[in-house]
Simulated assay, not measured.
Amino acid sequence: MSTIVFAFAIFCGWLVFDIVKHKKITLESVLSSLVVAVVAGIFWWILEWIF
């Protein structure tokens, strides 16, 4: 459960960062935020599994 919350937080943070940086929301920024969130979620899940 914490992996999903962490990935969602990363997605939102990355999306807000892109919106502030480019002053608009685009499909590319949403997709890049989604990719980063999925990768971060996978790494977080691996860390939870190891420790």
Rank of each mutant, 00 (worst) to 15 (best):
K21M: 10
L34C: 11
I50M: 10
V38I: 15
V36G: 03
S32V: 07
K24W: 00
I46L: 09
S2D: 15
L31P: 00
I10E: 02
V5T: 09
W14T: 15
H22F: 12
M1D: 14
I25C: 09
K24E: 09
C12Y: 04
S29V: 08
I46N: 03
V20L: 15
E28C: 00
I42K: 07
F51W: 08
I4T: 10
H22C: 05
K24Y: 02
I19E: 04
I25P: 02
V20P: 00
I10A: 09
L15M: 14
T3W: 03
F6L: 12
I10Y: 00
C12Q: 01
S32R: 11
E48Y: 06
A40M: 08
A7Q: 01
A9P: 00
S33Y: 01
V16C: 07
F43V: 11
I46C: 05
F8H: 02
G41Y: 04
V20G: 03
G41W: 03
I10W: 04
V16I: 13
T3S: 13
W44A: 11
I50L: 14
V30M: 15
W14Y: 15
I46Q: 05
K24G: 00
A9K: 02
V16A: 09
V35G: 08
M1H: 10
E48Q: 15
I10C: 10
K23F: 05
K21E: 14
L47D: 07
T3V: 09
F6Y: 14
A9F: 05
W44Q: 14
I4P: 00
F43Q: 06
E48S: 10
I42M: 12
A9M: 07
A7Y: 00
F6E: 06
I42C: 10
L47F: 11
L47G: 08
I25F: 11
V35A: 13
F6R: 02
F51Q: 09
A7H: 01
F43P: 03
